[in-house]
């Protein structure tokens, strides 16, 4: 995927300085240093807060420290990985975030694309205002969003009883073990659809409208234009937002953690792999095992998004 994006300018630059080979190459070596100089500050942060923690997490995951080892850090090889991949709590957490991906990502992307397509065909004042209002939840921290929905779900504060009462029904318990999954899907959908919608909308606006006219002359209806022309033409943005949604969902942490204190009993501390890692680290001080969970999750996320990008390389234009 890097070869096409980065090789093109490189060859273009290489082709240009034809005359004065010698002086050019001297200048180039000097300029090389400037390239590294501009890169240096980011590189420091990249090494200290990405590569080092990643390497350290891997080191921690190969060691064990606890009462059994007399409080000493002992090299235990892949033992922690054997444990994590046979740990029912980790596996069920992984399965759960997997289910979240399967349910939540299509709903979010579908809704975002639907709204963007509608907005793209309208140019009224209402459509401009709705574009802003749909986007607003993105500006709200996930904690506050989850808190707010927690209130709305709660039978004590929320409007559910009033609303369902209108129809003579009792409100369902949104925070029960059965419904909390759907309640979380709703919170995340509410929070992120606006952001995805803006990306899709901008991509739609970038399409040359003469394409639609040509299609209309060929007898294509609005539906055909939307599905046969617009959606295929914005495939690369769609791939990008699916990757964002995928990575975000597999790391699911904030919303279930916040909702946990309202939905007593429905969300265990092992609900998602990240929550499990957090509780292993900060409730049980098992930093080695927590790092193993984090590293295993990281690998799975990396593989997941890589496989997705590879499978959609035609649509996204990344090769």
């Amino acid at each position: 995927m890097t070869s096409t994006t980065s090789a093109a300018p490189a060859t273009a630059q290489r082709a240009r300085p034809a005359g004065g080979r010698r002086g050019q190459s001297l200048l180039d070596t000097k300029r090389q240093w400037w390239g590294w100089l501009f890169l240096a500050p980011f590189t420091v942060v990249f090494v200290l807060f990405l590569l080092v923690p990643l390497g350290y997490a891997f080191w921690l995951s190969l060691h064990t420290k606890g009462i059994a080892t007399g409080g000493e850090s002992v090299f235990t090889g892949v033992a922690n990985y054997v444990r994590v991949f046979t740990d029912a709590d980790f596996l069920s957490g992984m399965a759960r975030v997997g289910r979240f991906v399967l349910v939540m990502v299509p709903i979010q992307i579908g809704l975002a694309v639907a709204i963007a397509l509608v907005l793209d065909t309208l140019a009224t004042r209402l459509s401009k205002a709705s574009r802003l209002l749909v986007f607003v939840p993105y500006a709200i921290p996930a904690v506050i969003g989850a808190l707010m929905w927690g209130f709305l779900y709660s039978p004590r504060f929320g409007p559910a009883n009033d609303v369902f009462g209108l129809f003579g029904l009792a409100a369902p318990d949104f925070l029960s073990r059965d419904l909390v999954f759907g309640s979380l899907v709703n919170i995340v959908t509410w929070q992120w659809v606006g952001y995805y919608m803006i990306i899709v909308y901008a991509a739609l606006r970038a399409i040359d409208p003469s394409v639609y006219e040509a299609a209309r002359l060929d007898g294509a209806g609005n539906r055909a234009i939307a599905f046969r022309i617009k959606i295929p033409m914005i495939a690369s943005s769609m791939v990008m937002i699916v990757v964002f949604a995928l990575i975000g969902t597999l790391q699911f942490f904030t919303e279930p953690t916040v909702l946990r204190s309202v939905a007593q009993g429905a969300i265990p501390t092992t609900y998602t792999p990240n929550m499990y890692a957090y509780s292993m680290a900060f409730s049980y001080s098992q930093f080695n095992y927590a790092s193993t969970i984090a590293f295993a999750l990281g690998i799975l996320v990396f593989i997941g998004s890589y496989v997705f990008l590879y499978a959609t390389r035609k649509q996204s234009g990344l090769k």
Binding site: T2, S6, Q32, A57, F287, A294, F295
Partner: peptide, 30 residues
């Protein structure tokens, strides 16, 4: 800028976009 290691650097950067940043929180804490 054109310099040695640029393509490798860029590939690493793209790879790191796919690293879930929350996975780094616990080792960063330690």
């Amino acid at each position: 800028y054109r310099f040695r290691g640029r393509n490798l650097y860029f590939s690493m950067l793209l790879g790191s976009v796919m690293v879930p940043l929350t996975a780094l929180t616990i080792p960063t804490f330690v």
